[in-house]
Design a binder for these strands. Structure first.
Lengths: 344, 344
DNA sequence: CGTTGACTTGAATACGCATTCACATCTTTC
DNA sequence: GAAAGATGTGAATGCGTATTCAAGTCAACG
């Protein structure tokens, strides 16, 4: 806990420039009422003294803080690190700053969020994590707008933005069924997470009625190694019977499956077994995989999230929460056969 | 620019609990001098009113801010997003917060850093970006410790942590030469960046003396698509003569090269052409690539960076800057032949 | 029983800046 | 040329907390 050196203050600058302290404040405020000559003199003095306004002090008195907190879920999943990148760049573009937190999958996120709320932030984005009702109450009490990103919101207090996981997965289900999939393995992620749940249900809804379809589920732990190991565990030993098709509820697990099937069992995709994922991460789109998947339109989702954050704090209480469900984009890829007609 | 709602203050809590305001402050300060009974009463009142201490006000008066700013370079390179993740998790573990910035490759980073310095931060980590001498002076004036991550520091004012890029690349050069590489293509990154420069030099130093070696360099723009396109541009057209070996100065470019060579030219790695990268990103280690590379020990580098940040501000001026150069770890991979003996 | 010392406590103040408000200066307008 | 407006300026004050500091409480000790 470093003790901060006492900084040069606006008074010091004022003295050097021969003006009052408020003048210094105005010199640094665009559009403030001050003569150009005086502003220049002040800025010169400021440069000489290495003065920059202290954001903490300034937002204390102005009741304005251009900070947005972003709490990220499992950053080992490239989808979330790509998303964090988009958040950082988007927020920065609007001249605000990002206070970044990460919360391990399954770990208690309450204390991390509590930390975030001690800042007078303009808003809080929560990516794939739960939020206790205590915290919801706290955020309301503090007047901090909260938007859940990529997680279906339970209850009715919170706003949220998510991809249409159910329908996107249903599309994949129909495609796979049409391509002849009958023995299907679903690799699910966090059993508690709405994302995995919705995707599994959406997929099942599309294939359940198809004659001859059998479905099995395994846990891929939402990660590359989790899915890879699940494959190895499941198909090891003498003469396992492989499914026709695998649907992994996210791309990073699909990639884990692909690598295991190729490396450990010598299977070719999609000839021996077809595969689909969900998210549209960069890695899945590269040549060795060319994964058939549904892309979450991250840029748009982030933009809508920041839009919802603008909800004025005073509107928070009464106004009902906003939900935005955004359709995903099917990416044909090469891991489900017969997708040529989808290519542009 | 949302106007912050006026929050519940420590005075409100004090009144409800029937104590003075300083008592509330003490109740929230671990180890402060206050009876357990009174602290409990205060915490109960705080919970009832949804009170949490305001970090801005608190650090204004305590001259202590548990914030570290991290300015990330090109986040499209997985190495930097993996690094950012490690920073976030490490810093959070020490109960501090991360103020995250990103600066596009080549863009002016000065204004972003200026933004960061308006916060009373405990330290500033700059990942792969330049820092003007003006800013160095400013950071000294403000007493903010700065550590450059993964960039050789020019001049003598700044501390820095980096991998031994020269020697790591030299190791790769020796390996490739020993494996028979003679016609070698180097895919470089940012021509201004010390990282690319050092790696190119290190590699050349190892192969320059070898008889019959010819070296060509192309620009891969530090990115997947940059390297991929460079390959396509370079080898397109009738009867190009392919090199024996390609050294890309980072993994993401090596992956771009691998995909282009496979997809566009039907070349097999390492049979037709050998390949090496640098960084050790997750993606390069996966089965389809199994890239021969040098891994930057990110965890250790981050730990050392945070260590250097502890330099007390008052020591900043006089004390000479610290430099830590950390050796990389060779990862044998499968993209340079004859590496079996390196496997553990 | 009077003291010393270890803890608690609250009044007052500092932290660095933005904002209000009343006043001074400078432009317009008829 | 005087009145009305527009603009620039600084003294004073507020933002919400941590930190003095002097006064208060209590137990143990001789």
């Amino acid at each position: 806990m470093a003790r901060l050196k006492s900084r040069v203050t606006s008074f010091d600058v004022a003295k050097l420039a021969g003006v009052s302290q408020p003048a210094v404040s105005r010199a640094f405020t665009p559009g403030a009422s001050i003569t150009k000559e005086k502003r220049d003199r002040i800025l010169a003095a400021a440069k000489e003294l290495n003065y920059v306004p202290n954001v903490f002090a300034s937002s204390l008195s102005s009741k304005r803080s251009n900070m947005v907190a972003v709490i990220s879920g499992n950053l080992n999943n490239p989808f979330y690190s790509e998303t964090l990148q988009v958040f950082v760049e988007s927020i920065q573009r609007t001249h605000r700053q990002v206070l970044a937190f990460s919360v391990q999958d399954g770990r208690d996120s309450d204390d991390v969020m509590m930390q975030a709320m001690r800042y007078p932030i303009d808003g809080l984005v929560v990516t794939s994590a739960q939020m206790s009702s205590e915290l919801v109450k706290l955020s309301e009490g503090l007047g901090i707008p909260v938007v859940m990103f990529n997680r279906r919101v339970v209850g009715s207090e919170l706003s949220g933005v998510q991809c249409d996981n159910f329908e996107g997965s249903a599309v994949l289900g129909r495609l796979m069924a049409a391509a002849g999939a009958r023995r299907i393995l679903i690799v699910r992620g966090d059993p508690q997470g709405s994302t995995s749940i919705d995707r599994v249900q959406g997929f099942r809804s599309a294939v359940d009625g198809v004659a001859g379809v059998e479905i099995e589920e395994v846990d891929g732990e939402s990660s590359y190694s989790g899915a890879r190991n699940a494959m190895i565990r499941r198909f090891n030993g003498p003469g396992p019977r492989f499914p026709d098709a695998i649907f992994a509820v996210n791309d990073i697990m699909a990639i884990g499956c692909a690598d295991a099937l190729n490396e450990n069992f010598g299977l070719k995709i999609p000839d021996d077994i077809m595969l689909a994922g969900f998210d549209g991460i960069r890695e899945g789109q590269r040549a060795p995989y060319s994964l058939t998947t549904v892309r979450q339109p991250v840029e748009r989702m982030v933009a809508e999230t920041l839009e919802l954050l603008k909800a004025a704090p005073e509107d928070l209480k009464g106004a009902e929460a906003q939900r935005r469900v955004i359709p995903g984009d099917l990416i044909p890829g090469h891991t489900v056969p017969g997708m040529g007609r989808w290519a542009r």
